[in-house]
Design a protein around this nucleic acid. Sequence first.
DNA 1: AATTTTTCGAATGGATCAGTCGAATTTTCA
DNA 2: TGAAAATTCGACTGATCCATTCGAAAAATT
Lengths: 193, 193
Amino acid sequence: MVNREIFRKKVIITAGQIFSRFGFRKTTMDEIASELKMGKSSIYYYFESKEKIFEAVIRHEANTLRNELTKAIKEVDSPIDKMKNYVFVRMKSFEKLANYYNAIFDKNLDHFDFIENVRAKYDREELAILRLLLYHGKRKKVFKVDNSEYTALAIQTTLKGLEVPLFWKKKEVNIEKRLNAILDVLFNGILIK
Amino acid sequence: MVNREIFRKKVIITAGQIFSRFGFRKTTMDEIASELKMGKSSIYYYFESKEKIFEAVIRHEANTLRNELTKAIKEVDSPIDKMKNYVFVRMKSFEKLANYYNAIFDKNLDHFDFIENVRAKYDREELAILRLLLYHGKRKKVFKVDNSEYTALAIQTTLKGLEVPLFWKKKEVNIEKRLNAILDVLFNGILIK
DNA sequence: AATTTTTCGAATGGATCAGTCGAATTTTCA
DNA sequence: TGAAAATTCGACTGATCCATTCGAAAAATT
């Protein structure tokens, strides 16, 4: 049937949201099922196991990001090139990550801690790139930013949306500075000229 | 001993971070312990139960927010009054929440689903306030915003930092619009004049 | 109405996890 | 110093949770 694929995709999307929020271990089949408004036994009609769902989710995510990458490349022509370029780098960097994943799937699948580490490392890298971008933009008088560290954090959270950067767990977050960074950006913008 | 209180506070802070990320049920004592770099049995020397820790965390959080509220009130005098005023409302609204919590603690403590509902409701309310603020600011030509819905979302995520708004689980997030909202704000600011 | 596809409720067995206990270790202070 | 008090911890347990199975009901297709 053709519906089968549609349903599988629905599961992948839904499960993906929950996995990305709680990780593999903390996500239960019941949660996925109830989000899909069905009994959990039904899911097993489409997927062999929880791990197989996870695998599908990662593959789907990797593909999505690859697509966004190529799309972003084609669009580097607006006056906000600089920022779009960041998106480019972001996606590029994620490609490497996707390869990690594939490598894992080709072997045995019991490395979720490892995956978490890779993701945390990726998040940290991403933040560094953003901060660097802002810092250089500031020196070259393209951007005006007060605190690039916190502005970078603000952008990263917002970009990621639901998916909170993993390594933030370790990071001490100063809400005062965070708020100031947002206010600054909100009311002044950061592009000069 | 005086160290006892210091240690209890350390537990409250650490546990608070994990609880706010994963909720009560999904947080394990082992996680809290390993984050504190100690065996979990040791924690029971300071706290009677997991629920008692949670209770302490909520009380602590409520107090912190109350303090931030009074602090914010005193600071309503900068040219960015409007935004600070939002912070006021935010805190005010959280006070109500804190009362809910207290009410729950005075009765039997097995209502975590209820708590989740209250928090989700609060998050939704908060977003509504923000959106309204932006919308009226736009009409009165105080702000220039393209998409107040998404700008509001952007601000909310960033403000909350680690703590992702609960009801977002239900919300479909369009990364394109989200990105545009940020870029718009970043490069143009939203305050007119 | 027979067959195939899809859903679901109930059951299970293994894993997980809050909390206990007694012993080991460290700290206090005489 | 060394006895008493404070603190940590490893090993255990019983209850709960959770992925997965199975067979039967329900829906869809022929």
